[in-house]
């Protein structure tokens, strides 16, 4: 696309929506070719708007965008997938929103990241079919890895020696696991038992589809969650707002 073109077409996933004015909304779209963009849809909240149902958080759409002076303007939208299976489930919706927030916080505007776009699409596809909390953990590690914050889990980040089959220290500041011998020379960290180290390693080796089939105890799931949150918090220098919601959902009602 040249800078002279006044309009452009993208395929994107809407990751955020903010209502402005009487009936307009600004959408944050993570797209295949343009990366993260903000674009406004005029009169979208009016019932007669033709784009209304096609522009909503967690909808993958084919979009036609006109370049604006300060904000680009959405002129046409056609739903590709509305992820009904996710939006009808509170846990899945919360998980998707959390990952959208991660993308929003980690990715700069206008930086094309086609691989991350494919990864986000794949995450949503897997989330349709499974409720495994491992999907979120995988996406966190995938995102960190892709954006250059790879977590080293095979060798000690200090001495480069192969990590033995024993508890290691995860030091976000150092970028991975630290062996027993080097522990005293690093910053603060979290002790990671062997099953969690294996979960980290699997995430680097297998696909998301395979990762979510791993059987994990509640205790290990929680340890993995705490470890990945340490990493996210370190790189963002804060916790994503949607994390609290995801972790504090009321239990689903018991079926009679």
């Amino acid at each position: 696309m040249t800078s002279r073109e006044r309009t452009y077409r993208i395929e994107g996933i809407i990751i955020r929506r903010r209502n402005i004015g009487e009936a307009d909304s600004i959408f944050t779209i993570f797209s295949n070719t343009q990366g993260k963009i903000d674009a406004v849809a005029r009169s979208i909240r009016k019932p007669r708007s033709k784009m209304r149902g096609h522009l909503e958080t967690m909808v993958q759409s084919s979009l036609f965008v006109a370049r604006g002076r300060s904000l680009d303007i959405l002129t046409q939208a056609q739903t590709i997938d509305s992820y009904q299976e996710i939006r009808g489930n509170l846990e899945k919706s919360a998980a998707a929103l959390y990952c959208f927030e991660l993308v929003d916080l980690f990715v700069e505007k206008g930086e094309p990241l086609p691989e991350l776009y494919r990864g986000l699409k794949q995450f949503l596809e897997v989330l349709k079919a499974t409720s495994s909390p491992l999907s979120v953990r995988y996406f966190e590690l995938y995102l960190l890895n892709l954006l250059g914050y790879e977590v080293r889990v095979f060798e000690c980040v200090v001495c480069d020696s192969r990590l033995p089959e024993q508890t290691a220290l995860l030091v976000p500041e150092a970028g991975g696991l630290v062996c027993g011998n080097c522990r005293l020379n690093t910053g603060p960290g979290r002790l990671i038992p062997v099953p969690i180290i294996k979960l980290f390693r699997f995430a680097a080796r297998v696909s998301l589809e395979n990762y979510v089939t791993i059987r994990v105890t509640e205790e290990n799931l929680n340890l993995l969650r705490l470890a990945t949150i340490d990493l996210i918090r370190y790189h963002l220098e804060r916790e994503p707002k949607s994390q609290y919601f995801l972790e504090n959902l009321p239990p689903p009602p018991q079926k009679p």
Binding site: M58, L249, P252
Partner: peptide
């Protein structure tokens, strides 16, 4: 909307019991 639906599902969980 997604937020409206999430709120409805959340409230439903609290009220069902």
């Amino acid at each position: 909307s997604l937020e409206g639906e999430s709120t409805a599902m959340y409230v439903q969980r609290l009220l069902t019991p």
